[in-house]
Amino acid sequence: MAIVVNGTRVAPPDDPRVSLLDLLRDRLHLSGTKIGCNQGACGACTVLVDGKRVLSCLTLAAQVDGRSVVTIEGLGSADDLHPLQAAFIEHDGFQCGYCTAGQICAATAMLEEIAAGMPSYVTEDLGADGIAISRDEIRERMSGNLCRCGAHNGIVDAILQVATEKVA
């Protein structure tokens, strides 16, 4: 089998100890994905596996054999920004930028989750069909991505803008 990373087939590592994060950064040199805590507590290492957001630090590369992985490099590039990347720039959604790749991967999946009607802890009516997007909803849903620079207000603004454009 193979791991498909941003559309390219990659052989799984021989040593099962290699995490998906180490595979991406150290072996494939996709250094957009960041390592923060390496223990599930910060979200800097967030990537998409089969479209869902996961933490690459707590995922063994062996576990994603046969699956598709998308990193920040697969979402957009300097000449072809992803709408969330453009919105983060517009709204000052970062300062040092260390958490940004994780924030944008997480936000990409979060918008899909909202579109699919998945509830959050702050969703008032769990039985309702659609999710009314709000700053509170975004804050709760993005709580797995910490930002040491405190750029959270800009991050929420950026996501809200993309979410509203999507609906419009």
Binding site: G40, L58, T59, A109
Partner: peptide, 11 residues
């Protein structure tokens, strides 16, 4: 939904 984060709940 009160537990962990969206990423961790997906895993």
């Amino acid at each position: 939904l009160a537990g962990a984060s969206a990423q961790i709940r997906n895993m």
